[in-house]
Nucleic acid binder design. Structure first.
Length: 272
DNA sequence: CGTGGCTCCTGTTAGC
DNA sequence: TGCTAACAGGAGCCAC
């Protein structure tokens, strides 16, 4: 379900409420992408310190070690003082002194990992290769961005989705951001002009930031952890709009497949 | 070593 | 209307 804005909105919706909570017990449902890494009983007694985010991972710091949560394609979190009995797609519950944190994930591409910390081999393997944080100006800088583009001959759409240069841009926002910067999705990253690269750099920040501010959603079924649905203020300009007129030039939006993912673009505004 | 394809799983939708 | 097939917001892994 989630790209960076949805993950960040989810984080903000329960980070304060869960901070300081003591874990009573944890419950697992069906297997997720990876095993938890410890017996659920081993989490009892630990305290939740804070919730951070790295890329699309949520990092729940505990008094001992941390939990890494990933929502995959279809995951969502709820945090409430009480929740109904778990349904078929509720695969992780963390009962605490301040409420229950629940992962709902029909497709089960998501994950909950109990690790020692960021230096833990498993955590390190997943986190160390992640690219720049687009909403952190000290991480996401123009020199690094343009150097990264120069270093790859892959199509720009693949580079954005790859997460090695910048994290958090998923399939929807990749199309949106390329439309905003008027770059064809198949353009090799290293062939993008400096002008267009600069537009892309700013579009990534602006589009993601705006999405966070508006409650996170071009997504159909997104809801934050308090159950509030996304507002849909943020209409996608190209994603999912094949055949519909481009908002700038009225040319029908086109669809192409790259690495088994759909890319939507305006063939006129985003000429190669 | 960079790159692209495959894979995990279930629910929804498009097309016949 | 009903069945089937294609497709869906991610990303690690493994062949080239």
């Amino acid at each position: 379900m989630p790209e960076l804005p949805e993950v960040e909105v989810t984080r903000r919706s329960f980070a304060q409420a869960i901070a300081g909570a003591h874990i009573h017990h944890a419950r697992l449902g069906k297997p997720l992408r990876w095993p938890l890494g410890c017996a659920p009983e081993a989490l009892a007694g630990r305290q939740v310190l804070q919730v951070r985010r790295r890329g699309k991972y949520l990092l729940v710091d505990l008094s001992q070690g941390m939990l890494m949560l990933h929502l995959g394609m279809s995951g969502s979190l709820r945090f409430a003082s009480t929740l109904p009995a778990p349904g078929t797609h509720d695969h992780f519950d963390l009962h605490t002194s301040q409420g229950v944190l629940r992962l709902h994930d029909p497709r089960r591409f998501g994950a909950v990992l109990a690790v020692q910390g960021e230096a833990d081999p498993i955590a390190h393997k997943l986190l160390h290769k992640l690219g720049m944080e687009p909403l952190d100006p000290s991480s996401f800088t123009w020199p690094r961005f343009t150097a990264g583009l120069q270093a790859s001959s892959s199509p720009i759409k693949s580079v954005l989705l790859g997460g090695k240069l910048v994290v958090g841009v998923g399939n929807i926002y990749a199309s949106e951001v390329l439309f905003h910067s008027r770059i064809h999705p198949e353009m090799p990253a290293c062939a993008i002009s400096s002008i267009k690269a600069k537009r892309l750099f700013h579009a990534i920040t602006q589009v993601l930031e705006q999405a966070v501010q508006h409650g996170g959603s071009t997504l159909r079924d997104f809801a934050s952890s308090d159950g509030m649905p996304g507002h849909f203020q943020l209409q996608a300009l190209v994603y999912g709009r094949q055949h519909q007129p481009c908002q700038h030039c009225a040319t029908p939006i086109a669809l192409l497949r790259q690495n088994q993912r759909s890319s939507y673009y305006c063939p006129r505004c985003q000429r190669a």
